[in-house]
Amino acid sequence: MTRLERLRFQVEALGRAVARLEAALAHPKDEFVRDSAIQRFEFCFELAWKALKAYLEVQGLEARSPRMALRLAYEVGLVEEGPWLGLLELRNLTSHTYDEALAERVYSELPQALSLLKALLERLEAELAREER
């Protein structure tokens, strides 16, 4: 698989995951919806950083961790660093959502996370289209 094909695959996977997170957040909130949305956010974040990693590889850069991918994506102007580092912290909190208060906090931040993920997806789709020309 070429770097460009890997990027296309990652962007498509991210698109599907973002749509699923958006669908979960559209439901009336209850415990199951909350937990489902948090899990879907985890998937989205993982796919987002892997899509960033694939994009950076197309650009000749290498990121070995989510934090490094975010830093490099910021340096090339793909994302705003502050909000995305906040998403990384939010993602790190998801392993502790057995704590009800923490689960509620994470869930309350998911609409903003969805907005950032959708903006990234649009940007990556545009970059992919540009690279494929």
Rank of each mutant, 00 (worst) to 15 (best):
67 R>T: 14
133 R>F: 10
24 A>G: 02
40 R>K: 12
124 L>W: 00
98 Y>S: 06
6 R>I: 14
127 E>Q: 08
75 E>N: 10
111 P>H: 04
112 Q>C: 01
95 S>N: 04
64 R>M: 03
122 E>L: 13
5 E>D: 09
50 K>I: 05
87 L>P: 07
56 L>K: 01
23 A>E: 13
34 R>S: 11
17 A>T: 07
96 H>F: 05
44 C>G: 01
117 L>Y: 08
104 E>S: 11
17 A>R: 03
84 W>I: 05
56 L>P: 02
16 R>V: 09
91 R>N: 12
21 L>C: 08
10 Q>P: 07
22 E>A: 13
126 A>E: 15
40 R>W: 09
60 G>W: 11
109 E>C: 09
68 M>P: 01
78 L>T: 07
123 R>Q: 11
95 S>I: 09
47 L>S: 08
71 R>F: 09
9 F>G: 04
42 E>R: 00
39 Q>H: 12
118 K>H: 07
27 H>Y: 09
14 L>S: 08
61 L>S: 12
124 L>H: 02
101 A>E: 15
97 T>Y: 11
92 N>L: 06
87 L>I: 03
24 A>Q: 00
124 L>F: 08
118 K>P: 05
129 A>Q: 12
12 E>I: 03
77 G>L: 08
115 S>P: 00
38 I>N: 10
81 E>G: 05
104 E>N: 14
66 P>A: 10
70 L>I: 14
94 T>M: 01
9 F>W: 09
103 A>H: 07
50 K>H: 12
117 L>H: 01
102 L>H: 06
38 I>V: 02
17 A>M: 06
52 L>T: 01
106 V>F: 00
86 G>R: 05
120 L>C: 12
14 L>I: 10
75 E>F: 06
7 L>T: 09
82 G>F: 07
8 R>N: 11
34 R>I: 07
49 W>S: 06
90 L>R: 08
61 L>W: 14
12 E>K: 14
59 Q>L: 14
7 L>G: 02
35 D>N: 03
65 S>G: 10
15 G>A: 10
80 E>G: 13
88 L>E: 04
28 P>A: 12
39 Q>A: 08
69 A>C: 07
130 R>Y: 05
46 E>L: 03
122 E>W: 09
30 D>F: 01
121 L>I: 00
3 R>N: 09
123 R>N: 13
18 V>S: 01
48 A>N: 10
127 E>G: 04
107 Y>N: 01
117 L>Q: 09
64 R>G: 15
26 A>R: 15
